[in-house]
Design a protein around this nucleic acid. Sequence first.
DNA 1: CGTTACCTTGAATCTCCTCAATACACGTGG
DNA 2: CCACGTGTATTGAGGAGATTCAAGGTAACG
Lengths: 252, 252
Amino acid sequence: MASRSEARPPSVTPCESCPLRQLSSFRPFEAEELAFVKSLKSGELVAEAGTTILLDGSNSPHLFTVLSGWAVRYKLLAEGRRQVLNFSMPGDLLGLQASLFKEMQHSVDALTDVRLCVFPRQRIWELFKNYPGLAFDMTWLASREESILAEHLASVGQRSAYGRIAYMILHLFDRARRSGLARGNKLTLPVTQQDLADAMGLSIVHTNKTLKRLRATGWITWTRQDLTVRDESRLRDLAEYESVDKAPRPFI
Amino acid sequence: MASRSEARPPSVTPCESCPLRQLSSFRPFEAEELAFVKSLKSGELVAEAGTTILLDGSNSPHLFTVLSGWAVRYKLLAEGRRQVLNFSMPGDLLGLQASLFKEMQHSVDALTDVRLCVFPRQRIWELFKNYPGLAFDMTWLASREESILAEHLASVGQRSAYGRIAYMILHLFDRARRSGLARGNKLTLPVTQQDLADAMGLSIVHTNKTLKRLRATGWITWTRQDLTVRDESRLRDLAEYESVDKAPRPFI
DNA sequence: CGTTACCTTGAATCTCCTCAATACACGTGG
DNA sequence: CCACGTGTATTGAGGAGATTCAAGGTAACG
């Protein structure tokens, strides 16, 4: 609130030096694409941990890209039940549904402080009209989300609690690695057991007990927010896991 | 096999008279779009009931639109477990994932004889480059599939068996109605109890017993393949159901 | 008329849920 | 610095919902 003597960090990251562009899992931009995206970007938004970024049923005028931090996408049902659809991390797109349909079909909350790149959704049509490469990326991203949801559905519908947890840990680890968030076999996961339980259609009690059993094998460690995968291959066997991403990922 | 005296029906439907275009839930085509789609269409394929249209892990050179019939999209897991992701009906796109990623992430089987419109996936890029309206439709379709999977995930993760079945019946009915397959509150559903069970993450035994209980209320009738919804509003209450489609649907 | 696929029902079992209580970590204010 | 409140994690006990196993029953098809 009050002015401080020290300089504030620059509030907006210029697209040219966007940290996401460094990641190997993103395709390189054409010069014209970069210029367009730069012109499209209307600002940055920092959502504090615990706040809602997008609300189910709302008609947000913005489309976001996550620059840093973690978020959670979820649906609320009657009696306070919640289904977590997926966790969002740097490079993920938020709010596409509001741009394509009249309104959001789920909500998004910030798990940590989240820095978001903001685009006005009115100009989406310009993107489709003049930048087919970016339009293609958009379809790619939507289709990848579909793939991930299909995997989660198979998990919740067919795997035991034990397999589901193993699967979700591997899934999060894989995605975090691609987003540059993992350090070796270690990862800071700002996800509570309640979040996990809601993602996998389990009660928090059963999640806790299953997690305890999994930790007892020694294949993982998870204290506070620090997750370590100590025996990835056995965890993969347990979860019948195959990684989803198979091609380089687009930027927007 | 042998030639018959009566004339065979024309093997390919010209795009101008495509029955899908009549449906109110599809947006109208621009003239150039229609011409392009016509040139893109490389033929028609009829898949017999019970056959596999697209195989998980395969790299199909074709993209399909369902012209008539029902199909089922599913993933196979270990020990013969199967998760049904969704049921496909006229107007649905099949094989987008093989076009965007290296390979399919799930399989698709024909439930009835299915007539498919065939497009070569190599020319997808032309579509993005020259027909932004169609590219937009493609994104729209991918995003709608994502929405549907999110709903199913919420269903399997959070609803009781009773609610899940009610939800799925309403979901199928809504979609069938939009595809012109329902007659009033009646619908021919080529879906076995095993298909239903695999879609909702339930055993076939429990599905059967729950279905029996639901039929006993008199709200639905389901004999052979004929489903009738007799009290839609109570069914909706039971399922906490809200329809997903909220905007007119694109063509391709 | 026998085969096959699908549907139905009962019984025993087990996974997972709810209820309930306690423990632990962290931040806040006295 | 300690007491207290809040959110999260942990553990036990009992019960409900869903699973598996097993056995018929029914309709369609060649």
